[in-house]
Amino acid sequence: MSEKEVKNLEEIFEARIARDEKIEPKDWMPEKYRQTHIRQMSQHAHSEIVGMLPEGNWITRAPSLRRKAALLAKVQDEAGHGLYLYSACETLGISRDELYEQLHSGKAKYSSIFNYPTVTWADMGAVGWLVDGAAIINQVPLCNTSFGPYARAMVRVCKEESFHQRQGFEIMLTLCRGSEEQKAMAQDALNRWWWPSLMMLGPTDAESIHTEQSMKWKLKRKSNDELRQQFIDQTVPQADLLGLTIPDPDLKFNKETGSYDFGEINWDEFWQVVKGHGPCNKERMSARVNAWNNGEWVRDAAMAHAEKNEKRKVAKAS
């Protein structure tokens, strides 16, 4: 294809997106569109899968059967969400194995928040309330993104995700209405998860390298800073309701903007964690790699079994 032809196709493509038409996997698309989507969707899928680990830590120690059933269901949903997103990503011509390989080699990233440890039961509350809360804010606009398979996966994810946040808030509420120790545990969890949750919405707009192009492709409909402000404005009243204090002395309602002003985010910490130096990066990755490597013989055996059955069927028929 000549350069002129490609340029022409690109113009038609951009116009389709501008008209809010969806792009489907077999449609012509610029290589950069494909690559950007593989990067973002796989990062999203990896985050769901790695995100199961900090919670898996508490399944056997949930304080009641009700909590255990809910946590199990939540973790199972996350596996499902990872699967929807991997499948959507594979429609762009990359295999599941390549995607895993990118995660395991560190080439692909996942959300930095999952590199923090879950040290008390209250962390299950804080993760549901804050981390899933921030995730929902990030994900809702993606239900309208331009790539059809991604948008469809996100619709399903968002539908399922709202229980995740509610069960987290309920855990926090129960602790806050409990003994002094329980309330202190909830406050401690908020103290540890607040700032990482704000970081989770991504670097500031000035630092964010992908924003402009992603906006054009509707891979992003609001900037990181806008999403962060939305998260803060929505969460502060919820913390008040719990009777907890957000660990930011500079947090103050601004009557003029109708939003909360907040303190400086420690971006050094964010970049340290992204680069692999968070408290649990190594642990998370080794759990993933081990699960994949130790499961290899099971995957192979299942395949061998399927092939043997198939041969038997063919032999019987002939």
């Binding site: 699967l83 929807y84 499948s87 594979e90 599941r96 469809r152 996966a153 399903r156 995957r299 299942a302 395949m303 079994h305 399927a306 059955n309 198939e310």
Partner: peptide
């Protein structure tokens, strides 16, 4: 949607 499996039953 779609998924990977060794055979139809799985």
């Amino acid at each position: 949607g779609s998924l990977h499996a060794a055979d139809a039953e799985m």
